[in-house]
Computed example of a mutant assay.
Amino acid sequence: MTRALVVIDMQRGFDDLGFWGPTANPDCEANVARLIDAFAGEPVVVVRHDSRHPESPLHPSNPGNALVDAVANADAAVLVTKNVNSAFYGEPDLHGCLQERGIDELVLCGIQTNMCVETTARMAGNLGYDVTVVLDATRTFDLEEEIPGLGVVRRSAAELMAGTALVLQGGGFARIATTAEIIPA
């Protein structure tokens, strides 16, 4: 098998907790950096979210659109830019780039666990890739929404991360791993 590391939306704008709210897993960025180092000599795909909303920290005109240093300095085989949840709906065509390189195993990390990481993992699983999500190299934010028929639903970032792990692994989309499991001591 040929594998690639897919680093999703590790952007400075996600440090704006005034915009996003409380987060979980402060070790995410350090674990992503460790994964990038461990994948030296293997393809690393960097994904950047270019928000269409001018007020978003991730809009291309805002400084928060920039990648965090560990990712910006990575020797990326491909940089995919997107404005939706899935890295498979970006430019250039991620699936095509992976097929050209004969890659059939993906290791995913990044932000947000329950949004872009989960959506990309689900699509990758549906496309036939062998997918691993490195949960401690992801993070997300507390979420609260008014849902018709349910009222106000609140979940902490930690609950959302656990829920994503459960549905991805339980649904057969991906295996869940830790950084230590991917990078043996």
Rank of each mutant, 00 (worst) to 15 (best):
M1P: 10
M1C: 02
T2R: 12
T2K: 14
A4D: 04
A4T: 06
V6F: 07
V7C: 10
I8M: 04
M10E: 12
Q11C: 12
R12G: 02
G13V: 15
F14E: 03
F14I: 13
D15C: 07
L17G: 00
G18T: 11
G18P: 04
W20M: 09
W20V: 13
W20A: 09
T23Q: 11
A24V: 09
A24R: 11
P26S: 11
D27T: 10
A30C: 05
A30S: 14
V32E: 06
R34I: 07
L35V: 08
I36Y: 00
I36C: 07
I36A: 03
A38W: 08
A38G: 12
G41M: 01
G41I: 10
V47C: 10
H49P: 04
H49E: 14
D50E: 09
S51L: 00
R52H: 04
H53Y: 03
H53C: 05
H53E: 14
H53A: 14
E55S: 13
P57I: 14
P57Q: 01
H59A: 15
N62W: 00
N62G: 05
G64A: 11
G64C: 03
A66V: 06
A66F: 01
L67S: 05
V68H: 04
D69P: 11
V71A: 13
A74H: 00
A76R: 08
T81I: 09
K82N: 07
K82P: 04
N83I: 02
N85T: 12
N85C: 04
S86Y: 12
F88Q: 04
E91V: 13
D93P: 08
H95Q: 14
G96V: 06
C97V: 06
L98S: 12
G102C: 07
D104N: 15
D104M: 08
D104A: 15
D104Q: 09
E105I: 09
L106N: 05
V107C: 10
V107S: 02
L108N: 00
L108Y: 06
C109Y: 04
G110M: 13
Q112Y: 05
M115T: 07
C116G: 08
V117M: 11
V117Y: 10
V117S: 06
E118F: 00
T119K: 07
R122Q: 12
A124C: 08
N126I: 11
N126R: 07
L127T: 01
L127M: 13
Y129T: 11
Y129N: 08
Y129I: 10
V133K: 02
L135Q: 06
L135K: 13
L135V: 09
T138F: 00
R139H: 14
T140D: 01
E145H: 07
E146H: 13
I147K: 02
G149M: 05
G149T: 11
G149W: 00
L150K: 13
R154V: 14
R155E: 13
A157P: 05
A158R: 08
E159F: 02
E159P: 11
L160G: 01
L160T: 11
L160V: 10
A162D: 09
G163E: 04
T164C: 12
T164P: 06
L168F: 14
L168N: 07
L168C: 09
L168G: 08
Q169M: 07
Q169C: 13
G170D: 03
F173R: 00
A174W: 03
I176T: 14
I176K: 07
A177V: 11
A177S: 10
T178K: 11
A180S: 10
E181Y: 02
E181F: 02
E181H: 04
I182M: 14
I182A: 03
I183D: 00
P184A: 14
P184W: 00
